[in-house]
Amino acid sequence: MNKIKCRALLGFYENELTNNLLYFWKDACLDKEYGGYLNCYDNMGKQLVSYDKYTWSMGRFVWMWSKLAMMKGKTFNQSQKNEFLALAKNGRDFLMQHCLMGKNDWRCVFLMERDGTPKKVEGWDVLDMSVYADCFVVAGIGKYAEAANDRKAYAFAKQLFLSLINRIESGSFHTLPYPLSPRFRAHGIPMILTNVIKELHGASEKMDLGFIPTLLTHLKQYSDDILG
Rank of each mutant, 00 (worst) to 15 (best):
D52I: 07
K67P: 00
Q80H: 01
V49Q: 15
N82C: 02
G35D: 09
K53A: 05
G35H: 09
D42M: 10
G73M: 08
W65T: 08
W56R: 04
F61N: 14
Y54M: 08
G73F: 06
M58E: 15
G35V: 11
Q80I: 04
F76M: 02
D42L: 09
L68Q: 01
K46C: 11
V62N: 07
Y54G: 00
S79W: 00
G59M: 08
M58H: 11
V49P: 12
G36C: 10
Q80E: 15
K72V: 02
F61C: 11
N39G: 15
K67W: 03
Y51G: 13
K46N: 14
G59S: 06
G35K: 07
L68A: 01
K46W: 06
S66M: 05
Q47P: 02
G36K: 05
K72G: 05
M64H: 09
T55A: 05
S66H: 05
K53L: 07
N82L: 02
S50R: 11
K53W: 05
G73D: 03
K53I: 04
G35F: 10
N43A: 08
M44F: 12
G73T: 08
M71K: 04
V49Y: 14
W63T: 06
K74V: 14
K72F: 00
S79Y: 02
M44G: 09
K72M: 00
M58I: 10
M71G: 01
Q80T: 06
N77L: 12
S57K: 07
K67C: 06
T75P: 02
L48W: 14
M44V: 11
T75F: 01
W65A: 10
T55K: 05
N39W: 03
L48G: 12
S57L: 10
G59Q: 08
N82D: 06
S79E: 13
F61Q: 15
Q80M: 06
Q80D: 10
S57W: 03
N82H: 03
C40G: 10
M44L: 15
F76A: 02
A69C: 00
M58T: 05
V62S: 09
G73C: 08
S50N: 12
Y41V: 07
G45L: 06
N77V: 12
N82M: 02
M58Y: 02
Q80F: 01
G35S: 10
W63D: 07
V49E: 15
Q78C: 04
T55Q: 04
Q78Y: 08
F76E: 05
V62R: 07
K74L: 14
Q78T: 12
W63K: 06
G36R: 05
L38V: 11
L48A: 13
G59A: 04
